[in-house]
Write a protein that binds this DNA or RNA. Structure first.
Lengths: 215, 215
DNA sequence: AGAATAGTGTCTCTCAGACATTATTTG
DNA sequence: CAAATAATGTCTGAGAGACACTATTCT
């Protein structure tokens, strides 16, 4: 018997002001319907990252995304009857370009996850925790927004991921001081006073140096 | 053709006041001698972590160590002629219980790495970077020291990993304020005034909450 | 004019970083 | 008593967090 290597994806996006996960139906029917992470077996001559991108395109159709390796799960009995090692990637999709969902694939609120197969509930919880931590010391939050965005939208993204309200003035002060975004000359109109649009400065260091010792 | 899954180890320890890596000779003879990370193939009915521990015991004999998954490498041509996916674990060995080194295995200074096979030089560099970051926001530094230690020894461990000198008073203030270590009643005598021994508080949270946003 | 949203400043408190001297033990 | 190492406190500057009002646009 041989060991199967596969790649699975935790795909997150902001939809309707909340953080949502893209899942694949594994059948079962209501109310016992069970879901799984999208994924595929690793094939010959393909890197893990290529497999992850291929699977991303195959399921969402979307192209503009951010992917990073999360963790590799390999317990012999995590999938009963099969010996699979699964390399899980975390993916963030910009709200505009994210997939529509269809018969098989659907978006689910991260705050109220449905029943998931095998160990995938734990995997998802871990992915969310990692994203929250990462949000605090990297510039990864911008990956969830369109290329230009208002400060209010950015703050909303942070609040959706962290699950917590942030102070408007302090948020702006810190994010601007960090120097990772820059103002454009455009504004976005709507109800009320139009808001200035910002863009991510890709010349900014992605990983900001962490503080010394225990913060 | 099938894909081999294996586990490789980056084993680090403090020896002679410096951070060292445990490597396996891959032959070649001086001055072209090449080294590799210790590792083994994943076998049926074995979890990744079990394989890592098994390999650790098989090569170092040592038992008291800390292991965590680092990253999984799976490029199709990372090992010419073979299709291997390698799940790499980072291991920290306490200075006292670390393996002696023999014909095949030897310790090497992390600051002056020898020639390594395939992509393993890059893997090692990544492991060192991750450890430095991790040292700054977790309590992982204690894994390199015996169970009781003086503050001077602890500071030495941090300095060896970070490759940088730290201020004695500031280091003590912060490490004590963090509340992850506690004083014992014992002292260690030697030359000069005996130093109080401390021990790691395992009830302390391992992952200290990171700061908000960009530090 | 009123509703809606954008945008802005101050104060306090905690903590990081720089820095030098006293205390205790051994030989 | 000399040598060696341990232990300790203060000042300054930067940034986090709490907090409320003014500015601009649309209908």
């Amino acid at each position: 018997m041989t060991i199967e290597v596969r790649v699975d994806l935790v795909l997150l996006s902001l939809r309707q002001e909340s953080l949502q996960v893209f899942l694949e139906s594994a059948g079962g029917g209501e109310p016992r319907e069970t879901w799984r992470l999208p994924g595929c077996a690793l094939v010959e001559r393909q890197s893990l990252e290529q497999a992850a991108w291929g699977c991303l395109k195959g399921t969402t159709g979307g192209a503009d995304a951010y992917l990073e390796q999360l963790y590799t799960y390999g317990d012999p009995d995590r999938v009963p009857g099969h010996r699979t090692v699964s390399c899980v990637y975390l993916g963030l999709l910009r709200s505009d370009g994210s997939a529509p969902g269809g018969e098989i694939h659907q978006w689910h609120r991260a705050a109220r996850l449905p029943r998931l197969m095998h160990d995938q509930g734990a995997i998802l919880k871990y992915a969310l925790t990692r994203l929250r931590y990462k949000l605090e010391y990297t510039a990864v939050g911008f990956e969830l927004l369109p290329q230009t965005f208002t400060l209010t939208e950015l703050q909303g993204a942070y609040e959706a991921v962290l699950g917590e309200d942030l102070d408007k003035r302090n948020f702006r002060r810190r994010i601007l001081r960090a120097g990772v975004i820059e103002a454009t000359k455009s504004h976005r109109s709507g109800e009320g006073r139009p808001a200035r649009l910002y863009r991510y400065r890709d010349d900014a260091v992605a990983e900001v140096k962490a503080r010394r010792l225990f913060p």
